[in-house]
Amino acid sequence: MALVPLDQLVLEASPRLYGQDREHVQRLAEIDAELPPILVQRTTMRVIDGAHRVRAAQLNGKEVITAHFYDGTDDDAFVISVERNVTHGMPLTHADRRAAVARIIRSHPHWSDRAVAARTGLSDRTVRAIRSSAELPQSNERLGLDGRMRPMNAADGRRRASEILKDAPTMPLRKVAKASGVSLATVHDVRQRMLRGDDPVPHKREANGRALPLAAADKPTSQLALAKDAVCLEAILARLTKDPSLKYTEAGRLFLRWLHLHAIDTKDLESFLDTMPEHCRQSVATIARQVASKWQNFACQLEHSEDSNCCRSSVLNTENA
């Protein structure tokens, strides 16, 4: 930390589309306590975080301000500026964040939608829409939040994994995943397909019956379906939570608390697959199937109340099986 002359600082390239807010500057200027140090890019003296504090110091007639220095590129400095102004101080507006997303995608095209979303305070769906709607550079690989690079064309990654499994069938699957650039879950799927004698790349059918490689994402087909279902599940849960007939009755509130505890967040499923020990997988799979069966029978009772006796019988049979 050092004292930096105010006249040496550069207040440009801010993620704020309309610059600093005068009222916020005035509020900061009226604070008697010492404000936190600002963050400055050493090579350019550009203020990464703390432009409002600089303006407040100028308003109070000060000549120096305490600062930390950052050594890095302009593009990385901008990302840090966005991160800092999303989590504290005067938050960036929605328009500021959307503009920041477009710039970060241009400077870091290999970052995944979730990685950009985590830094800008927007959802990954919003980031995906911005990426697809603008003529922005595309990368054949994406860097995820876990720091791993994954190919956008999953077919290539699957084929690399299958080749490694052929040449080194005893290699740990986690090493295969790292070497081929795909997830551990994908390697498991590839191995199962090879054991069945199937193509390691899933296929979908055109109208004329011709098979096409499915290279939409670095996930098995079932996981892609789960990702789509997650959006629908979140919307349904949000709607039920606001429903007055549930929200304002004791039984309804009890059920909502229970439902939120037991509803599965499908966004976590892939991380569970990646970290699940090999010797535990079959046991967890058995539990998952039994729980799924009970949920299925519960759905039957809800949808077909007139056939509830049949459904209850089905539940009992499942529990006694």
Score class of each variant (00 low, 15 high):
Glu270Ile: 10
Arg196Pro: 03
Gly209Phe: 08
Ala288Phe: 05
Arg253Val: 01
Ser222Gln: 14
Ile264Thr: 13
Ala211Lys: 12
Asn208Phe: 13
Leu273Gly: 11
Arg191His: 11
Ile287Thr: 09
Thr249His: 03
Ser222Leu: 15
Lys242Trp: 01
Thr241Tyr: 02
Thr266Arg: 12
Leu224Val: 10
Ala177Asn: 00
Met194Val: 05
Ala238Lys: 08
Leu240Cys: 05
Ser271Ile: 14
Val182Trp: 00
Thr266Gln: 09
Ala227Asp: 07
Ile287Cys: 13
Glu270Val: 04
Glu234Ile: 08
Lys175Trp: 00
Ala285Tyr: 07
Asn208Tyr: 04
Leu261Lys: 09
Ser183Leu: 01
Tyr248Ala: 06
Thr275Glu: 10
Val190Gln: 01
Ala227Tyr: 11
His260Phe: 08
Leu240Trp: 02
Cys232Gln: 12
Asp199Asn: 11
Leu269Lys: 03
Met194Lys: 02
Lys219Cys: 02
Pro172Ile: 02
Pro200Lys: 02
Ala292Phe: 12
Pro172Trp: 02
Gln282Glu: 13
Asp274Trp: 00
His279Leu: 10
His262Asn: 10
Val284Asn: 07
Thr275Met: 08
His262Gly: 08
Gln290Asn: 13
Glu206Thr: 15
Ala230Asp: 07
Ala292Val: 07
Leu226Val: 07
Thr286Cys: 12
Pro220Phe: 01
Ala225Ile: 03
Asp189Ala: 12
Ala292Pro: 06
Arg196Glu: 10
Arg289Gly: 15
Ala299Arg: 07
Asp243Ile: 00
Leu226His: 02
Val231Glu: 10
Asn208Cys: 10
Leu254Arg: 09
Gln296Ser: 05
Leu233Lys: 04
Asp189Gln: 06
Gln296Val: 00
Ala217His: 02
Ala211Arg: 11
Leu226Asp: 01
Ile287Ala: 07
Thr241His: 11
His279Tyr: 13
Glu270Trp: 00
Ala216Asp: 14
Asn297Leu: 15
Glu234Gly: 03
Gln282Leu: 10
Met194Trp: 02
Arg253Ile: 04
Pro172Ala: 03
Ala185Arg: 01
Arg239Pro: 03
Thr266Ile: 07
His279Met: 05
Cys280Thr: 14
Val182Phe: 00
Leu226Thr: 04
Gly252Ile: 08
Lys294Trp: 14
Asp243Met: 15
Lys178Ser: 10
Trp295Ile: 15
Pro200Gly: 09
Gln223Thr: 08
Val201Gln: 06
Leu224Asn: 05
Thr186Ala: 04
Arg239Trp: 12
Asp274Phe: 06
Ala288Cys: 04
